[in-house]
Design a protein around this nucleic acid. Structure first.
Length: 614
RNA sequence: GGUUCCGUAGCUCAGUUGGAUAGAGCAACAGCCUUCUAAGCUGUGGGUCCCAGGUUCGAAUCCUGGCGGAAUCACCA
């Protein structure tokens, strides 16, 4: 930290700020080119700049195909003409044309200036805050009848990371959680505890509260299934059996009592939820996620019911003869949707209506994001449609960030069958593996136990988090418990290691009394690895904004990985402290400073910490 | 059955306003530590981008139709 600051403030005065980015310089020149030729200005979308592929010489490539019509010349000719015009720019060193591609070699001085400026900018790549826009991000949203599993880990990490990314894009972000603390599933666990719990508590059992309650849930489901099977064996229709089994009847009766405010049921409910929250808090802390506000379904479903009443008055909703309330969405290509059961109890979507209104009243947010699995795509379509039908003008600001399921090689995880990858177990395993690897490699010898534990924790969690977040959120992903999560290659620890290397290098520089200077005049040309590294760093701001626009941490993860890989190659090929040309050495130091900084801040957007050494 | 999403190397994944000879990692094999951290670097092998048409200078990407998989369409959440 200290070193970074020294490097950052050094020669602050000499640094010119707000230099134009090369893309803008080229676009501007292109515009002048067409004006000088008295040709019509090409539309912005025709100007396609991309990174030059590795096998060709150059840094930035202009695709010239779109211009051949405007200029009425062949691709090669067009490329030559534009290329020689652009070469007059001080930022363009050279060019070559291959097929319809104009490859531009950017002047080393441009990259040097870029590295000088960016490495002195502690906010490089992020947008300044615009207090106008407030975004709400709902994530986690656990049920209180079972502990968190790998699917919840994905949800929590995505929600946390997306919140950070939106903040980096200048939004004000409020993270909210909606706890599904009421409903038939909780009644099942309460019933199980009454029947088989023997009045024990999690501490009696020596378990985390959420695990303790989760076992009761599984116990209920097993007993319930057994009862249904027996009824079926005695000749009952399976559907009828599922409805008529005494266990489910009892659970439903309990739900009715709960909604009626029965004190005994309520006390037990509070007690058991309390156990679960204690357990969740531990897991949240380990994952490093937190919330600005926690909503409880038990508090929002009243509002939901009130909205249903209002909808009935407005005749947007319709009550059937049996007392159940529905909305007809057939004109939108969907079905009829139930909003209240015939016994007057509310369903899942009822409380979501209430929650949405309550939140809008609380925050008046410009957007309300819901990080919820893609199995609920239909639910959220219906939710915003209903709010729209009911006349809430902000209904359009709801957005479902729909992410894919985490599946096992055998298929979907099923809590009811106990076929899940438990979050706490997985975290334990990751940290254990990190510890084993660290001691095998002897990396942490000579550190105190606290330091070791902290670093091992950082690495284990880094491996887990990166493993989840590098995948496009929208896609389903497969986790194979038989194969442990890697610590080499495209992984969190690889990136963390790169950071540790850089920090170690900079520390060494400081200890050797090296104080680099930012010089905007240089007397050398950059190597391929140096420009390659600078070019990836140059892409960081765009990655941040794209990640924000697409709510995709994977975009950040992929860029940071590419950056780390490139740095390791650079590090392997080039001496830094031993470089004899002082200006070159200083450039490499600032390149390292910037790389370390972008890795640290990029990983922070993923909610992953990076160690000073490992 | 209707709707939505997905299909890229043995495995896990990038490749998203249509751009060059489709890329990484893992796994396998072969190298590189007296030198700023080898959790690293270098190399080899590995592809019908599910199939078939269409759109155009150009398609893994867009359109249509198939095939395969997943989710959803509950008085479950």
């Amino acid at each position: 930290m200290v070193i970074l600051r020294i490097f950052a403030v050094f020669n602050y005065n000499q640094v010119q700020y707000c230099s134009m980015r090369i893309e803008d310089i080229i676009t501007g020149a292109l515009s002048r080119f067409f004006a000088e030729k008295s040709l019509p200005q090409p539309e912005q979308s025709l100007i396609q700049l991309q990174k030059t592929r590795k096998e060709f010489e150059g840094d930035i490539t202009l695709v010239v195909f779109p211009f051949i019509r405007l200029m009425k010349s062949s691709p090669a000719e067009t490329g030559e003409k534009i290329g020689s015009y652009l070469k007059k720019l001080p930022e363009i060193h050279d060019f070559n044309v291959i097929k319809g591609f104009l490859n531009l070699v950017v002047e080393s001085s441009y990259w040097n200036l870029f590295v000088n400026e960016s490495s002195a900018d502690s906010n490089y790549g992020f947008s300044p805050h615009s207090p106008k826009e407030t975004f709400l991000v709902e994530f986690s949203s656990p049920n209180t009848n079972k502990p968190l599993h790998l699917g919840h880990i994905r949800n929590n990490l995505l929600g946390h990371s997306i919140s950070k990314i939106l903040e980096a894009n200048g939004k004000i972000v409020k993270k909210v959680n909606l706890v599904n603390d009421r409903g038939i599933h909780i009644c099942k666990t309460m019933l199980a505890w009454q029947k088989w719990g023997n009045n024990t508590t999690p501490s009696d059992a020596g378990m985390k509260g959420d695990h303790f309650v989760g076992e009761l849930y599984v116990k209920f489901e097993k007993a319930y299934r057994k009862e249904v099977d027996e009824l079926v064996k005695n000749g009952m229709d399976p559907d009828v059996a599922r409805r008529e089994a005494s266990l489910i009847k009892e659970a439903q009766e309990m739900l009715r009592k709960w909604e009626a405010g029965d004190p005994g049921v309520n006390d037990l409910w509070k007690r058991m939820n309390g156990w679960v929250y204690e357990g969740f808090d531990v897991t949240y802390r380990r994952l490093g996620v937190s919330f600005d506000k926690i909503y409880y379904e038990s508090q929002t479903y009243h509002m939901g019911k009130a909205i249903v009443e209002e909808g009935l008055k407005k005749s947007v909703l319709r009550k059937k003869d049996d007392g159940s309330v529905w909305i007809d969405l057939t004109h939108k290509g969907l079905d009829e949707k139930l909003l209240l059961r015939s016994d007057g109890t509310s369903v899942y979507i009822t409380q979501d209506l209430g929650t949405a209104v309550m939140r809008q009243n609380d925050y008046h947010a410009d957007k309300m994001y819901y990080v919820v699995g893609n199995e609920q795509d239909y639910h959220f379509r219906v939710l915003s449609l209903i709010l729209g039908e009911m006349g809430y003008e902000w209904a359009g600001s709801l957005e479902h960030i729909s992410y894919g399921m985490v599946e096992l090689p055998s298929g979907k995880m099923k809590s009811r069958e106990g076929k899940v990858v438990d979050a706490d177990n997985l975290i334990d395993e990751m940290i254990e593996t990190a510890g084993k690897l660290s001691s095998e490699l002897g990396k942490l010898d000579g550190l105190t136990r606290e330091e070791k534990e902290s670093i091992i924790n950082t690495i284990g969690m880094g491996a887990l988090k990166y493993f989840i977040l590098k995948v496009d959120p929208r896609k389903n992903m497969i986790f194979n418990p038989e194969e442990s999560i890697d610590f080499n290659g495209n992984t969190g620890p690889f990136i963390q290691y790169t950071h540790a290397r850089i920090r170690s290098l900079l520390k060494k520089a400081e200890l050797s009394g090296i104080v680099p200077e930012r010089k905007n005049q240089i007397d050398f040309r950059l190597s391929d690895k140096e420009t390659g590294l600078a070019a990836i760093l140059h892409e960081f701001p765009q990655a941040v904004s794209e990640a924000g626009a697409n709510c995709s941490p994977a975009i950040i993860a992929n860029l940071i990985y590419e950056l780390a890989r490139e740095y390791n190659q650079f590090y392997h090929d080039h001496p830094v402290l031993k470089e004899e040309n002082i200006r070159r050495r200083d450039f490499r130091l600032f390149l390292s400073v910037l790389t370390g900084d972008v890795i640290r801040r990029g990983m922070d957007l993923l909610g992953i910490a990076v160690p000073e050494r490992m």
